[in-house]
Design a protein around this nucleic acid. Structure first.
Lengths: 192, 192, 192, 192
DNA sequence: CATGAATGAGCCTTCATTCAT
DNA sequence: GATGAATGAAGGCTCATTCAT
């Protein structure tokens, strides 16, 4: 089992890249096959269809991201400020290493019926909300609408990625992680 | 020329609504025509094609929004905190009155080559950056990377709209404007 | 009734020009209207439709041409050679003055069911055949298949027009009428 | 790869037949597909589109014809009269065996920008002109405008084909080749 | 007479998908 | 596993024609 499914990997990478750039509806099977250097029919050896493929890739990528993010936010023996800062750093490094993957996940959220996601137990936002609630219970954050706080933090952290992706922000987010983390702490009302 | 363009308006409203919901690539001419109660060919009397229509509507909607937003941020005789708070309120009321229009503008930014927008002189983000820079010069905000600050504020303000649109945030943003504005002030390092 | 139907004339001229250049099927109502500077609906004030218009114009133009050609070939007191030479000259001058009209007539012959033409009594080829037959009876031309002779002469006379129209023949046919007429006489076996 | 392209051939034959009968603009993709017994999309596996298909078929058919015609006109050890007679016979037999192909080539010349043809190096008329010029140099034909002579001969030879195709000439051209060849010799001023 | 918006059918093309090889 | 021809259903767009103004 030296290098099996090498073409499959190519197709998946091509799909993620194109989905991240053109969106799900804007990407065709032919686009994916061409970029991967295979023919159109090859895709159906591995997936039942385009939407099925996108959905599976979406689940996989979200979980890969979430499963790495979760322990960072929950690390024991670290202050909230430290964990939050590391979380932001992690996201931006993830974006540096796998920009298409991260943007794919961000852009694709409105492409599937919301029922899909809850059924699949995929909910990175919920993870953040849970994290914030537990910190409120612990007294580190003043009690407030956790979903709103999540939205504020999420927006502040991810928007620089869009701005960089689309050329408005010249500095790479990895270099701005400290400032962004500080802003998040202020959003949450934490004195550093 | 009694009541011209009544069907045209219907087509435009239908298009904006569908573009906001399904995206540009996910919306068909037939969708638009059906929802507007006309036939497909009618669209071509007013627009050269689907993409052309989307682009023109995008320009129009962005400008309608921006031209109302600008004086709010520039109002003389008001503190920065006041103006920013009013700006957030304006955005959320805009979203209440014309949710499709606002979401259309937000979602559509990545659908056109970025060259298009700069060529057309359409740049609401640039407006925000300019606003922040002038406040830095005036000393109201500590000097920093204005583009980054814009991204942070933009993300924090708009993400609640997505969250509400997609059902995660139950409270309507109009009721949260005060909290969001306060968070923005903290992001910018302003003591209220 | 000073200058009525000025727009009608413009539409007819535009139609003939476009039919001659792009063919009947390759020309649209919008093409005609645009080139004539009117709107599409205006055409239906004068004609029942595109094909109807083409057919009427075709009949009109063929008859205008044929009615002028006939007396030239039948002129009494002139030798066959003289009449044939004048006929060729006439055709080429016609092409100089109204190139679109002539080419329209030439190209359009296969666009209508052949039944149409015989029903309408339009048959310039038949005129030539009749002319040749009467000359055979008169002894000026050796008896032969008159239709074949007509085809040979017709081809030899008209092909230079195509060649000039499409750029292969640089000299204008009017300057070549003498040579072409001489060739026609040789085709018919007449010693000048 | 047992019997590939069998459907492709069918599509090409159908296209040539229809183009020859209704012209390029008058033939639809559906016409071609229906006559070939395939669906419309099948065409796009082999050609980029209708016009592209027509252009490629046109080039192919012209070349197939020209490459067979050329050696006939250049055969050594044969008089000019012999070679010309054989050329006419060849054309008419070609028309008998592949009437659609020949008519397609004749009718389609005005459907493409003339630039196309010269760029593609396709020029059967040029071949005739070259042939005539070399015979002039050799003294077999009196010096004259070679392009004009080509037009005269071309018209005389091909017009009978149109006349037969459209029903005016009842005798099949193959039976008239001798008379037509004789007429061509007279056009060129050659005593048999 | 003329306009211009609108129609409905049809055209060229693309798409996701299937299947024999 | 992979190919590439083929399909059938849309998709975007155009066309000849109609009609209220």
């Amino acid at each position: 089992m030296a290098r099996p499914a090498v073409k499959r990997r190519g197709m998946e990478a091509a799909a993620i890249s194109l989905f991240a750039t053109r969106g799900l509806a804007g990407t065709t099977i032919k686009d994916i096959a061409t970029q991967a250097g295979v023919t159109e029919g090859a895709l159906y050896r591995h997936y039942a269809g385009k939407n099925e493929m996108a959905w599976q890739l979406y689940c996989r990528e979200v979980q890969a991201f979430t499963s790495q993010m979760e322990p960072i936010l929950a690390r024991s023996g670290a202050t909230l400020a430290e964990r939050l800062t590391e979380g932001v750093k992690f996201i931006y490094q993830y974006y540096r290493k796998q920009p298409d993957s991260l943007v794919f996940v961000l852009l694709t959220r409105q492409s599937f019926p919301s029922q899909y996601l809850t059924d699949a137990g995929i909910d990175p936002d919920g993870m953040i909300v849970g994290f914030l609630r537990s910190e409120m219970t612990g007294g580190a954050i003043t009690k407030a609408d956790a979903t709103l706080l999540m939205a504020l933090v999420r927006g502040a952290v991810l928007e620089p990625i869009y701005m960089h992706r689309y050329g408005k922000l010249k500095t790479h987010p990895t270099k701005l992680a400290g400032q962004v983390a500080a802003a998040c702490l202020r959003i949450l009302g934490i004195d550093e």
